[in-house]
Amino acid sequence: MDIILNGIFSGIVLAFLIGPVFFTILQTSVERGFWSGFSVAVGVSLSDAIYIFLCYLGVYQVFDKGNFREYLAYFGGIVLLLFGLYYLLIKSRKLSKYDPERIKTQKPVRLFLKGFIINGLSPMVLIFWLGTVGVATTKFGYATPGKAIPYFAAIVGTVFITDILKAKLADKLRSALTPKFIKTLNIVVGIVMVIFGGRLIAMADNFSTF
């Protein structure tokens, strides 16, 4: 039980870190509904699970190379910048005549990939899981699969559940949507992604020192 409780606590900390994923889930759920936000959350959780799996198996020794983190920061920053510019320059204009009854639902696969890419290409996520796996296997003594699996499953499960709650709460706002609100929301998401992308690129050299 202590293992699961530690995992839930770590998951809550991760779930409420404010970043691109947080705003992406909210924006997608507000604009396209709960199940669209759910698909994004699934992609986010799968990318987290893959990072945990790789780190725990020891493949993190490859990922922990300074150059790899630096290149990942550049690549992830560029991706976030492109997403941000899309929301600012294209998405906000497309939704100037937003009609919640007529908007098309994107295919779940596309939304899944959206969450997977935005979360998976963030070096901060990689660093978080490297640190978490290190603490779990050394300080907590969760080196064996019998202890590690429940711990990390509790983390991912907690994050997934909180992401679903975010999507559900955001979906409730749809009844009060106006074209101006949607346009503003997309502009905010775009600005957030541009800021995070720019910071990743600006700090890329620093990742080689972690």
Results as ranks from 00 to 15, higher is better:
177 L>P: 10
21 V>T: 04
139 K>R: 15
43 G>T: 06
153 A>N: 07
41 A>W: 00
81 L>I: 08
128 F>H: 11
139 K>N: 11
69 R>H: 04
128 F>E: 14
184 T>F: 13
13 V>K: 14
144 T>C: 11
191 I>N: 10
144 T>S: 10
153 A>C: 08
62 V>M: 08
115 G>F: 00
63 F>P: 04
139 K>L: 14
96 S>E: 15
125 V>L: 13
120 G>C: 08
55 C>Y: 05
46 L>E: 00
174 R>P: 03
204 A>S: 13
123 P>E: 06
102 R>G: 05
24 T>S: 11
115 G>T: 04
100 P>K: 09
26 L>P: 04
105 T>C: 13
207 F>W: 02
1 M>Y: 10
192 V>N: 03
189 V>A: 15
129 W>P: 10
205 D>P: 03
1 M>C: 11
48 D>C: 01
164 I>H: 08
85 L>N: 09
71 Y>A: 15
99 D>I: 03
182 I>K: 13
45 S>R: 04
16 F>S: 08
121 L>W: 10
189 V>R: 06
114 K>I: 13
17 L>K: 15
162 T>Q: 09
167 A>I: 08
38 F>R: 00
103 I>K: 12
72 L>E: 00
198 G>N: 06
74 Y>C: 00
173 L>V: 07
74 Y>H: 13
203 M>W: 13
132 T>P: 01
32 R>E: 11
58 G>C: 04
167 A>D: 12
66 G>N: 02
139 K>A: 14
44 V>K: 01
106 Q>W: 14
200 L>T: 02
43 G>E: 03
67 N>Y: 15
185 L>R: 07
22 F>N: 04
38 F>K: 07
197 G>L: 02
172 K>G: 12
4 I>H: 00
123 P>S: 07
19 G>W: 05
79 V>H: 07
110 R>T: 14
134 G>R: 07
111 L>Y: 01
87 Y>E: 06
153 A>G: 11
15 A>K: 07
59 V>N: 02
99 D>A: 08
99 D>M: 07
13 V>R: 14
85 L>W: 09
23 F>V: 03
210 F>T: 07
6 N>T: 01
115 G>M: 01
51 Y>V: 05
206 N>V: 05
185 L>M: 14
125 V>M: 15
198 G>H: 03
7 G>P: 02
39 S>Q: 12
39 S>G: 07
